[in-house]
Amino acid sequence: MASALFPAVHRSLGKVRWYLEGMMGADAYRRYVDHHAATHPGCAPMSERQFWRDKYDWEERNPQGRCC
């Protein structure tokens, strides 16, 4: 178990992953669930599949520029 032998390596890999996911927006669902739990307690959030469909539909209507 490499991760057990090298907890420091494991931790820093985790950080890299956290950073990349944040930067690319891969953590959007987790953040949505947290937000939903905080603002709508007791009401079930969308499923992950549903959430991503909804997110891309939203991006369709709200295009974001990319720079030159």
């Binding site: 944040g22 930067m23 927006g25 953040r31 937000h35 974001q64 720079c67 030159c68």
Partner: peptide, 26 residues
């Protein structure tokens, strides 16, 4: 905050996000 485009985001993550959006071929 709406769980979508308005979301408080860690400054280091947002820096990468912002940089990826501004930097291109120019």
């Amino acid at each position: 905050s709406n769980g979508r485009d308005f979301m408080p985001t860690d400054r280091r993550v947002l820096f990468g996000h912002h940089f990826a959006a501004i930097a291109g071929a120019g």
